[in-house]
């Protein structure tokens, strides 16, 4: 029996979010629902990235005045995960904004949010 610690738990949550997000993007028909599924997917990726850098019993990787410089690199959680995730959150928001804008334009043209109807269109 594997003992479930925080890191494993968060990995499982991240995997769950990625699976739910991918499934929603692939199988749901409503475009707004697809966008919400995309936000779930990017949340899952963010959680996975933060969990990768977690150190059991570590400290926050901010060098405060009291911390000794020798103990800091051994105990601090890895900084690369948060570094990427901060950018990924911003990118997620801007991608969502672009997707919503395109959806509004397509709704004005077709009057429906169903992806199966909107994307069916035949090319000349």
């Amino acid at each position: 029996m594997i003992e479930i610690n925080l890191q494993l738990l968060c990995f499982m949550a991240a995997a769950l979010l990625v699976v739910i997000g991918l499934g929603g993007m692939l199988f749901l028909d409503n475009i707004i629902k697809k966008i919400i599924a995309f936000t779930l997917l990017s949340d899952g990726v963010n959680l996975a990235l933060v969990t990768l850098g977690y150190v059991e019993g570590g400290i926050v990787s901010i060098l405060e005045p009291g911390t000794s410089a020798g103990a800091f690199p051994e105990n601090a959680v890895l900084i690369f995960g948060p570094g990427i995730v901060l950018t990924n959150i911003v990118i997620g928001v801007s991608t969502t904004a672009v997707l919503v804008a395109v959806t509004m334009v397509l709704y004005r043209r077709y009057g429906t949010l169903k992806a199966s109807k909107v994307l069916k269109g035949e090319r000349k």
Binding site: I32, V50, V55, V60, V77, V85, I89, T96, A97, V100
Partner: peptide, 29 residues
């Protein structure tokens, strides 16, 4: 997971920005 800066950012983005953008989209459609 010891990433408090991300927690704050995520809280702001999740409560205001993401639902806000999607709600604008919903009201326009």
């Amino acid at each position: 997971l010891l990433a408090p800066d991300l927690g704050l950012t995520q809280a702001i983005v999740a409560t205001v920005l993401m639902p806000g953008i999607i709600i604008i989209g919903i009201f326009k459609t």
